[in-house]
Simulated assay, not measured.
Amino acid sequence: MTQLTATGKAQAAPAVRRGPRRSRRALVLNLVAVVVGLLVWTALATIGVQGLPNPLEVAGRAAELIGDGTLVTDALASLRRVLIGFLLGTLLAIPVGFLMGWYATARGLLEPYVQFFRTIPPLAIIPLAIVLMGIDERPKIFVIFLAAFLSSVVSTFQGVVDVDKTLINAARVLGASDRTIFLRVVVPASTPFILVGMRVGLGAAWGTLVAAELIAAQEGLGFRMQQAQLYYDLSTIFVGLITIGVLGLLMDRLLLLAERRLTNWQERR
């Protein structure tokens, strides 16, 4: 028994050491990808592709916008809208997805509406949102909320439906109640789907932001990019695009970290 345990530890040791090595390799590859992207961008700007600004021009414009506080103000305004819409959408999507997946009656009542609104782009709701809610923050947040909700609810629902029936039946044989099965079997098994849905919902929220800020916004990254479009200010547009991408990437990495912590029981490649 001691020998077997020692052997198991010896076999497991390389797997433990391999983790940091893979992280370093991934970081190096990410840096290489960024450098290659900047070189390609510089090359395209050098040959004069439709007035494309080069990275140094964009960096200089970013420094100007940071210096006068414009970029920080716009980024905080957009971040606030995305966070509120995303959190509200996720908080509603998770219980609705569980209801649809666990109760056949709830599924029959709710699924037609969910699938119907999934076929309608959230951007198409903007005119209706303006008429019903006015032109303040509410319609902007509502459109972002809708994008996040529709992405997350389907993933949560699918996670509940795809729970291995063998696990549920085994729990019932052992005398577990429906409440215990739901809390101890269904919720943990659905967690990876929920977190993936949250990541998709976050992407949808950021993707809807620019259009949402068409609604009489006075600040925000989308608003600033639309103003820059009127004056053909490509450098400002690139600053807005890069800022949205960086903020979205950072939030996605935080969700990915939470996913790894909450689902460390899963096998990963």
Rank of each mutant, 00 (worst) to 15 (best):
D74T: 05
A75Y: 02
S78D: 03
R80A: 09
R81L: 13
F86I: 03
L88Y: 04
L88S: 09
G89K: 02
G97V: 06
L99C: 07
L99I: 06
G101D: 01
G101Q: 03
G101K: 05
W102Y: 15
L109T: 14
Y113Q: 07
Y113K: 04
Y113D: 05
F116S: 08
T119W: 08
I120M: 14
L123V: 15
I125P: 00
P127D: 06
L128V: 15
A129T: 01
I135H: 01
I141F: 01
I141R: 02
L150I: 14
L150T: 08
V153G: 10
V154I: 14
S155W: 06
F157E: 08
Q158E: 13
Q158S: 11
G159C: 05
V160N: 07
D164R: 13
L167A: 08
L167S: 10
N169L: 13
A170Y: 09
A170E: 04
A171M: 14
A171G: 07
L174V: 02
G175M: 07
A176S: 14
A176W: 05
R179E: 13
I181F: 03
F182C: 05
V186S: 00
I194T: 03
M198H: 02
M198W: 01
L202C: 02
A204L: 08
A205M: 02
G207H: 09
T208R: 04
A212N: 06
A212P: 06
E213Q: 10
E213F: 05
E219H: 12
G220H: 12
L221Y: 13
